Computed example of a mutant assay.
Amino acid sequence: MANISDVFSQLSGRPDRHSIFEDAQGILAGVLIASLGLFFMGKAHLVTSGMAGAAFLLHYASGLSFGLLFFLINLPFYILSFLRMGLAFTLKSFAAVAITSALVDVQSRYLTIGEINPVWAALIGGLLLGFGLLALYRHRASLGGIGILAVYVQDRTRFRAGQVQMAFDAIVLTFAFLAAPLPIVLASVLGAVILNVFVMVNHRSDRYSVLR
């Protein structure tokens, strides 16, 4: 979900200048916005990049809760997160994933959407998810997932983190082609592109270096 290998490299070794309250409100705001983006995507039966995309595919195939699946498939990555990014980042990311998982599943109690165009869901969902991720990154947290593994693989092999993440996203979208109509898959690709471009353009350490 978004190419966060560069984000991790920007965060590594930087002091955490936010207070506990600042982190708490920033992470809560981030997960609220991100979960709304995922909710829009789910209502249009879209997938996205990263582990959220994998969770969507499993959700559509099995009927199990997206939130539960998203929470469970992220569990193995916390070991790598601890090794690569440290305890504070790992705990914040665990909390962010857990809250997001719960929020996506309870959104329908408070928000009813009868029908949404897949392209519009991709646009709005991708932007909302991007905004949510930016908030999390600024408070040294993430929504877990393949980006952590990608950085870990890069440290130990000749493969770059971006290549690992792109390969995983390609696998997710390939399965989407097998499981969903072409318009839905194309809208999903659009949403993933919007998400990644938004994060790439708006998260720059040289521009926001004073904020941690």
Rank of each mutant, 00 (worst) to 15 (best):
V104W: 12
L83P: 00
V106R: 05
I116L: 04
T112I: 10
V119H: 01
V106L: 02
W120H: 12
W120A: 14
A102F: 15
G114S: 14
A98P: 13
T112Q: 07
Y110E: 01
N117Q: 07
I99T: 09
A102G: 15
S81P: 02
F82R: 12
L87F: 14
S101G: 14
V104T: 11
R84Y: 02
F82Q: 10
F94L: 06
T90W: 04
T112D: 04
V119F: 03
T100F: 01
K92A: 11
T90G: 06
K92W: 07
F82V: 03
L103Y: 10
T90Q: 07
R109S: 10
R109L: 14
S93E: 07
S108Q: 15
A98E: 10
A98R: 13
Q107E: 09
V106F: 09
P118E: 06
E115V: 11
P118Q: 03
V119G: 01
L87S: 15
L87H: 13
V104P: 06
I79H: 10
T112G: 08
I79F: 15
E115C: 09
L103G: 08
A98S: 15
S108G: 11
I116P: 01
T90K: 08
L80R: 04
K92E: 10
I116T: 01
A95I: 00
G86S: 01
K92H: 13
M85V: 05
V104M: 12
A98L: 15
I79N: 08
G86M: 05
A98V: 07
S101I: 12
D105V: 08
G114E: 11
S93K: 07
G114N: 13
L103T: 06
K92Q: 13
S81F: 02
L83R: 02
L80A: 06
A102I: 14
L111F: 15
L91R: 06
R109E: 10
A88G: 02
L87R: 15
V119I: 05
K92G: 11
N117E: 12
L111M: 13
P118T: 07
F94G: 03
K92P: 07
F94Q: 05
E115H: 13
G114I: 08
F82G: 03
T90H: 02
R84S: 01
W120N: 09
T112R: 05
R84I: 01
L103K: 15
S93Q: 00
F94A: 06
A88D: 03
Q107L: 14
G86R: 00
E115R: 13
Q107I: 10
L103C: 13
V97Y: 03
I116W: 01
F94C: 03
D105I: 06
L87N: 14
A88E: 02
P118G: 09
L80F: 01
F82N: 05
A88R: 04
F94M: 06
F94W: 06
T90A: 08
A96K: 04
A102C: 12
T90P: 00
L80S: 02
I79R: 12
K92S: 08
T90I: 09
V104F: 08
A96P: 00
I79S: 10
I116Y: 04
L83D: 00
